[in-house]
Lab assay of single mutants.
Amino acid sequence: KSAVKALFDYKAQREDELTFTKSAIIQNVEKQDGGWWRGDYGGKKQLWFPSNYVEEMI
């Protein structure tokens, strides 16, 4: 599983989504079709976030 870095702040709209700030590192990313991926951040595990808010880390 990979890690991504947030390009923008994102505030969860639902309880199954992540809230994060710009430059946050989201771990254990599971990529899905449809523009939403799952990952771990801030003590939350495998919640959804919009993939267009992040960049992949190499």
Rank of each mutant, 00 (worst) to 15 (best):
S2D: 11
S2I: 15
S2C: 15
S2H: 14
A3F: 14
A3I: 15
A3C: 15
V4M: 11
V4Y: 14
V4A: 11
V4T: 04
V4H: 08
K5C: 15
A6C: 08
A6Y: 01
A6S: 05
A6D: 04
L7A: 07
F8P: 01
F8I: 09
F8Y: 14
F8R: 15
F8L: 12
D9L: 03
Y10D: 02
Y10W: 08
Y10K: 02
Y10G: 01
Y10N: 01
A12W: 04
A12G: 11
A12C: 07
A12S: 08
A12I: 03
A12P: 04
Q13H: 09
Q13E: 11
Q13K: 12
Q13D: 08
Q13P: 03
E15L: 11
E15I: 12
E15F: 10
D16K: 05
D16H: 08
D16S: 09
D16I: 09
E17W: 00
E17L: 00
E17T: 04
E17D: 04
L18S: 01
L18M: 06
T19Y: 03
T19C: 08
T19N: 08
F20A: 00
F20N: 02
F20L: 04
T21V: 12
T21F: 12
T21P: 15
T21I: 11
T21S: 13
K22D: 01
K22E: 08
K22Y: 07
S23H: 15
S23A: 12
A24T: 08
A24F: 03
A24Q: 05
A24V: 08
I25S: 03
I25H: 05
I25N: 02
I25P: 00
Q27F: 15
Q27R: 15
Q27E: 14
N28H: 07
V29Q: 00
V29L: 02
E30D: 15
E30F: 13
E30W: 13
K31V: 08
K31G: 03
K31Q: 08
Q32P: 12
Q32T: 14
Q32N: 12
D33G: 11
D33F: 10
D33P: 15
G34V: 06
G34P: 06
G34D: 08
G34H: 08
G35L: 11
G35P: 10
G35F: 10
G35V: 08
W36G: 01
W36S: 04
W37G: 02
W37C: 04
R38A: 04
R38K: 12
R38G: 01
G39D: 00
G39I: 03
D40K: 01
D40A: 00
D40T: 01
Y41G: 01
Y41W: 08
G42A: 11
G42V: 04
G42K: 08
G43E: 10
G43L: 08
K44T: 06
K44R: 11
K44W: 09
K45N: 09
Q46T: 05
L47T: 04
L47V: 05
W48F: 10
W48V: 04
W48Y: 10
F49S: 01
F49Y: 02
F49T: 01
F49E: 02
F49H: 03
F49K: 03
P50F: 04
P50D: 04
P50G: 03
S51P: 05
S51L: 06
N52C: 14
N52L: 10
Y53L: 14
Y53E: 01
Y53G: 03
V54C: 05
V54D: 00
V54S: 03
V54A: 06
V54Q: 01
M57F: 14
M57E: 09
M57H: 11
M57N: 08
